[in-house]
Deep mutational scan, measured.
Amino acid sequence: SKGEELFTGVVPILVELDGDVNGHKFSVSGEGEGDATYGKLTLKFICTTGKLPVPWPTLVTTLSYGVQCFSRYPDHMKQHDFFKSAMPEGYVQERTIFFKDDGNYKTRAEVKFEGDTLVNRIELKGIDFKEDGNILGHKLEYNYNSHNVYIMADKQKNGIKVNFKIRHNIEDGSVQLADHYQQNTPIGDGPVLLPDNHYLSTQSALSKDPNEKRDHMVLLEFVTAAGITHGMDELYK
């Protein structure tokens, strides 16, 4: 796709999030870079409003799984890469995230190029959380598991539907599940690639910047598309 050509090198990323969870309002600002050749993201996020009212790991899918245009699609799968094909005009990404036995996040993001920078601007609203639950009670460990993110075409809306389940580790050794339902639709009216069913395999590492006084998260992530085999004719070339 034409959009794919915008991702040949390292691309700067800007992320802006405004959130409200159970009436606790907050903002997060992030910057870093993405390299789609390797499916690599390096980002640093800062809570610009003081202390973040929710655990950082609960925002990873909104912040970095928010820029799935940096996923590495192998050559034989490039015609299934909706995310890059929607660029530079970008796409709207909407999600509902259900935390098992707790509340939910609803998010709406616009992901697009502004100049040479890929920008992810998000509004997040969280409701029905227990004040002493795993999320508002800050009981999650500061780490992140690997996940597969399942993608299918949504021809009606000229976009994709995505769903997956995140496993958050809790300090007591148990797990907090979070079910994600995602819809992506193009902002522009140019042609986009509608994929066959496949998935993104994601690995994320969270860390801290020892010199950063503000509440923050440093993230390194690798994302690769998989799940579609080479056609038989490919094998015999």
Rank of each mutant, 00 (worst) to 15 (best):
F7H: 13
I13T: 02
I13L: 10
L14Q: 13
E16V: 09
D18A: 07
D20V: 10
N22H: 04
K25N: 11
V28E: 00
E33G: 05
D35V: 05
A36S: 07
T37P: 10
L41P: 01
T42I: 13
I46V: 15
G50D: 02
K51E: 08
L52M: 05
V60L: 04
V60E: 00
T61I: 00
L63P: 00
S64P: 00
Y65N: 00
G66C: 00
V67L: 08
Q68P: 03
Q68L: 01
M77I: 07
H80R: 05
S85A: 11
M87A: 06
V92F: 15
V92G: 03
F98L: 11
D101V: 01
D101E: 09
G103S: 04
N104S: 13
K106R: 12
R108P: 00
K112R: 12
E114V: 13
D116G: 13
I122L: 04
I122F: 00
L124P: 00
G126S: 02
F129L: 06
N134Y: 12
L136R: 08
G137R: 11
K139R: 13
N143D: 11
N143T: 12
Y144F: 11
N145T: 14
V149I: 15
M152R: 09
D154E: 06
N158V: 03
G159C: 09
I160V: 15
K161T: 15
N163H: 09
N163D: 12
F164Y: 08
I166N: 04
N169T: 14
E171K: 10
S174T: 15
S174C: 13
Q176L: 14
A178S: 05
D179E: 13
D179V: 04
Q183L: 10
I187T: 09
D189V: 12
P191H: 10
P191L: 12
V192E: 06
L193R: 12
L193P: 07
L194M: 14
D196Y: 05
Y199N: 06
Y199C: 10
Q203L: 12
A205V: 15
K208I: 08
N211D: 12
R214L: 06
D215E: 07
V218D: 02
L220V: 15
A226V: 07
G227E: 07
H230L: 09
G231V: 15
M232A: 14
M232V: 12
D233H: 10
D233G: 11
E234V: 10
Y236C: 14
